[in-house]
Deep mutational scan, measured.
Amino acid sequence: TRVETATETAWISLVTALHLVLGLSAVLGLLLLRWQFPAHYRRLRHALW
């Protein structure tokens, strides 16, 4: 049971790290898009909202 718990903890930390990385890359990508294509971003936002 001790090994299982350790594996579970490792998986949880791995998944958390993955989610953090994905979230950060998504935010960075959005910022980059907004910085590179302001007109396109505004049009996209206008279409979405």
Rank of each mutant, 00 (worst) to 15 (best):
T1L: 14
V3P: 00
E4Q: 10
E4N: 11
E4W: 11
T5C: 01
T5K: 00
T5A: 01
A6E: 07
A6Q: 13
A6F: 06
T7I: 13
T7C: 03
T7W: 11
T7M: 13
E8H: 01
E8W: 02
T9F: 11
A10I: 07
W11H: 07
W11V: 07
W11L: 02
W11K: 02
W11N: 06
I12Q: 08
I12T: 11
I12F: 06
S13W: 15
L14F: 00
L14N: 02
L14D: 05
L14W: 01
L14C: 01
V15W: 02
V15C: 04
V15P: 00
T16C: 12
T16R: 05
A17G: 07
L18S: 02
L18Q: 03
L18K: 04
H19P: 01
H19I: 01
L20F: 13
L20S: 04
V21D: 02
V21P: 03
L22Q: 01
L22G: 09
L22R: 02
L22A: 12
S25Y: 04
A26Y: 01
A26G: 14
A26K: 07
V27E: 05
V27C: 12
L28C: 05
L28H: 04
G29N: 02
G29W: 07
G29L: 14
L31D: 01
L31Y: 13
L32S: 10
L33Q: 07
L33R: 06
R34E: 01
R34W: 02
R34H: 08
Q36N: 11
Q36H: 15
Q36C: 07
Q36S: 15
F37V: 05
P38I: 09
P38F: 10
A39D: 12
A39T: 15
A39C: 08
A39E: 15
A39N: 11
H40D: 05
H40F: 13
Y41F: 15
Y41D: 03
R43T: 14
L44D: 03
L44H: 08
L44K: 05
R45I: 03
H46L: 07
H46M: 04
H46C: 09
H46N: 14
A47K: 14
A47W: 08
L48N: 05
L48C: 09
L48G: 00
